[in-house]
Nucleic acid binder design. Structure first.
Lengths: 145, 145
DNA sequence: GTGTGTGCAAAGCCTTTGCAGTTAT
DNA sequence: ATAACTGCAAAGGCTTTGCACACAC
């Protein structure tokens, strides 16, 4: 993520915002707790409150997007312009695979049109068991996604 | 919803369970608060705790399904066997339209296979503006969905 | 300098749970 | 009879917020 791009959006850049952005270069999908643990782990002192504030700020500016993969915790992901995609999520190890299918996108538009809806956004989440978990039949490693 | 069917699942039928089931005959999608408000409104004394317990119970027995239409509150819907469908949700008035597209279902399976995933379930939610909200440009009525 | 960002602790909100009493079968 | 259900109040987990201080521009 280009820092100048962020600045141009009128966002004040702080140490914390920068390290959070950098995390998203390494991990595609993160929740607030994972961010907190990773930063504390690498010696960065930051409070959960700040993390939530940064995430809200980024979300409002459309820098990140918020997902509901899990029932009770939001997962965040960097927005990459013109790179919309959907997700396959392993319910055992949390592995997330991104995919894009133009045919599905097209069909969604048709459905919206037929129902006189103007689509603003959509979530297509396929929950299942990944190859590894299926073959081992137990949770080998829980992914930080 | 046939009450005998419920009993056959080994569920003890109480007054509360019955009135909650009846609500779902009138409203396709309800959250815990809406259920509480509707029941209190019709003179049924029931606590939120009980509502959550009944909903958990029903969900475990696959009588209802839990959705994440909203970020911070679960929405529940009766499971109608062999009637899987997805949702169009109006972000202004909460109108929910159900749809089913076998082509999309088929494409999802293909994607899963290609990624060596075994799909357990999926959510396809299309968020947008319904015809009514689009034409009036304001929230006329917020739907209890 | 001045408007933002930050940590801490407290509070909010949805949801779950312990306990003692009640109900369905 | 007995296992399941219920209300109440308390607690849990994620998220937000008030306040006083610190930092970016």
């Amino acid at each position: 993520m280009n820092l100048q791009t962020i600045k141009n959006l009128g966002i004040k850049l702080t140490k914390h915002k920068i390290v959070i952005l950098q995390l998203f270069d390494s991990y595609r999908h993160l929740d607030a707790n994972q961010i907190h643990a990773l930063l504390i782990g690498q010696g960065t002192n930051i409070s959960l409150a700040t993390i939530y504030r940064v995430l809200s700020n980024f979300e409002a500016k459309n820098i990140i997007i918020r997902h509901s993969f899990k029932e009770d915790q939001s997962t965040y992901e960097l927005v990459r312009p013109n790179e919309h995609h959907d997700h396959l999520i392993c319910i055992k190890c949390n592995l997330v695979i991104e995919f894009f299918d133009s045919k599905i996108e097209q069909l969604q538009e048709q459905i919206a049109t037929k129902n006189k809806f103007k689509i603003v956004n959509h979530h297509l989440n396929l929950f299942g068991i990944c190859e590894k978990c299926f073959s081992t039949d137990y949770i080998s490693d829980v992914n930080v996604i």
